[in-house]
Amino acid sequence: MQLSTKHLLGIKDLLPSDISLILSTAQQFKEVLQRPIKKVPSLRDVTIVNLFYENSTRTRISFELAEKRLSADTINFAASSSSAKKGETLLDTVHNILSMKVDMVVMRHSASGAPHFLSQHLPNTAIVNAGDGINEHPTQALLDAFSIVEKTGSLEGRKVLLIGDIMHSRVALSNMYLLKKMGAEVMLSGPPTLIPKYVQQAFDVQVEYNLKKALKWCDVANVLRIQLERQNQVLFSSLREYNLAYGVTRKLLNEVNKEILIMHPGPINRGVEIDSDVADSNQSVILKQVENGVAVRMAVLYLLSGKKELSH
């Protein structure tokens, strides 16, 4: 029983059986997290470095908690306070860290493909992608899937709507790979300027520019963050106009009048892509997603650590 891959670079590389294994293992870790002592000794012999070349609250804390709950030793590295500022290359930084006997690397980087580059140079170290540029954010898609299964029972045949900035969203890309692999139906909605032209053919997904129609279709709506830091060009006229056309509001949900599960990967821009009375409602599982994130990341780290050779 093991994953078909040594690293978790993206959902793209996973088999449906890998995804099922991660989700079922996460289910057991979720139970561990309810115990009086929320810790297991599985990774006592493993040291993990968290390399964060890009800011993060949820993902970094979630990974660190997951590592600690597995009894791994952890080192945290934030690029902003490191020698990367002095001009050290990514590969040099990582080689230096690994020479201190580190077994796994969790990395977030603003450059798409950075973890893939590392994996080519470090074949014996397990690398976990915690988000690379506008490419993938695999653990987010896995925790989204876990949350959908937890609330609705399965992914097969589930109608999932991704709303917003599909173009710049690594969450959207990882979700599309995962949902399609697991037999869910996917629809995209958002301003035409934020939905890539060939995505429909590439992923066999539907596109619906009218949000109300899209909401009527779906069982689950995953509301993506408008990524202000990745908007180099003006792709929509203003945040207020975005909210009017694509913001998920109470009024809109009342008009649709359907039990839709509302998800958001965070951080939320309240009043832009989602209104507070939706984000904080009973329909929303946004904080459940965060809770599930720890269990899912424990499963990923546990399953990847199993591949390690004893003598190194």
């Binding site: 029983m1 057991q28 870790f29 650590s305 390690k308």
Partner: peptide
């Protein structure tokens, strides 16, 4: 665990 993973 380092020899073989089992299903939880």
């Amino acid at each position: 665990i380092r020899e073989e993973l089992h299903e939880a």
